[in-house]
Design a protein around this nucleic acid. Structure first.
Lengths: 194, 194
DNA sequence: CCTACCGATCGGTAGG
DNA sequence: CCTACCGATCGGTAGG
């Protein structure tokens, strides 16, 4: 089963590359580094992947998909804006902590994507942020949230959790949901009209 | 005045390098890139600087110094914890927005420092964060702030403003102080015991 | 500040 | 998956 072996090897390459991209950055990670950690020659990597950037593309777009899927699975149609926002952030943090290395690459290394991938990526990120922005706007209209620049607030909110992949230890006391709730409660209580 | 010319040239090199490090990342910026933008040969850079990393060190440690100076200038001894925290964050944001390119490098590129600079840098950053942590702890003891993991909260708080250098436009409507107050008010209101 | 150049390393290909 | 190798580029130095 050559195909199966290759698939596993490809997964292994992407996983190790993800770790190295997180630790050293994409540009400072060489294909020889990567090959060395896997135990093959650099040239052999190219039996499994097309290019160095293809690995980065795989990581970034897979993460983007995960964020969208998790958010869409939230079933928030009938909730109040504050509950919606909280669940959306919890969903976001759960994805962030599911694979911390891939999340860190997603957050920090996307700018090394070349066109047209870079534009696609930024477009998806904008769409994602817009879902949060809409919740803030709706919540303000409903008299739940203060009148603040929605985009600005969402960027601050997402940034306040996006550092977590670099720090999160899966063996810590708090679950991702608990962590997310702690952060979000502070933020949302501050957003609320009192 | 050879010395004066050299000093200006050195400043120019560091300034342009700061812009390139922000846009492309430290590792993806070559000395030939940098020299090209300045209009000299790559080899000529080394009449003014010792190495590529020296530029990064200059940026990172100058910014660190600026953050400390600004915070120390706050004169917070006699204030309540919530005022202290607010002023400390305002100070932080004012430094962040004073030179957005240098701030972005400070926030994102420090990991490319080699030892012992890396350890020194992280030690300074820890000291800085500890000043914020202490404000949270004192505020909790005084019954002003909720009981939250202080370190965790400070990291979330600082992260929620550290993305700003990448976005801030000096010609925007809000001053750095106003921006900082907006962000901080949300956060601090959420932290407060109600 | 330049020319000339160094050894090292880069991502990637050819061919097996 | 390896050997052998490509052209390009890297940070940096010598010497003027």
């Amino acid at each position: 089963m050559i195909t199966k072996i290759k698939l596993n090897r490809k997964q292994q390459i992407i996983e190790k590359a993800t770790q190295l991209f997180q630790k050293q950055g994409y540009a400072a990670t060489s294909m020889r580094d990567l090959a060395g950690f896997i135990g093959i020659e650099a040239a052999s990597l190219y039996s499994h992947i097309k290019s160095k950037e293809e690995i980065l593309q795989t990581i970034c777009f897979q993460m983007a998909e995960d964020f969208f899927q998790s958010l869409d699975a939230c079933e928030l149609a009938n909730e109040q804006a504050d509950v919606k926002l909280k669940e959306a952030v919890v969903s976001h943090v759960e994805v962030l902590t599911r694979d911390t290395a891939a999340s860190a690459v997603f957050v920090s290394e996307w700018r090394h994507l070349s066109e047209p991938y870079l534009s696609d990526f930024l477009s998806m990120r904008n769409q994602y942020e817009n879902k949060f922005i809409q919740i803030l706007i709706d919540g303000n209209k409903a008299g739940i949230f203060k009148a603040l620049d929605a985009k600005f607030t969402v960027l601050a909110l997402l940034s306040s959790v996006n550092w977590m992949p670099a720090w999160y230890k899966p063996n810590g006391k708090l679950s991702p949901r608990e962590i997310a709730e702690n952060v979000t409660d502070v933020f949302i209580n501050g957003l609320k009209v009192r």
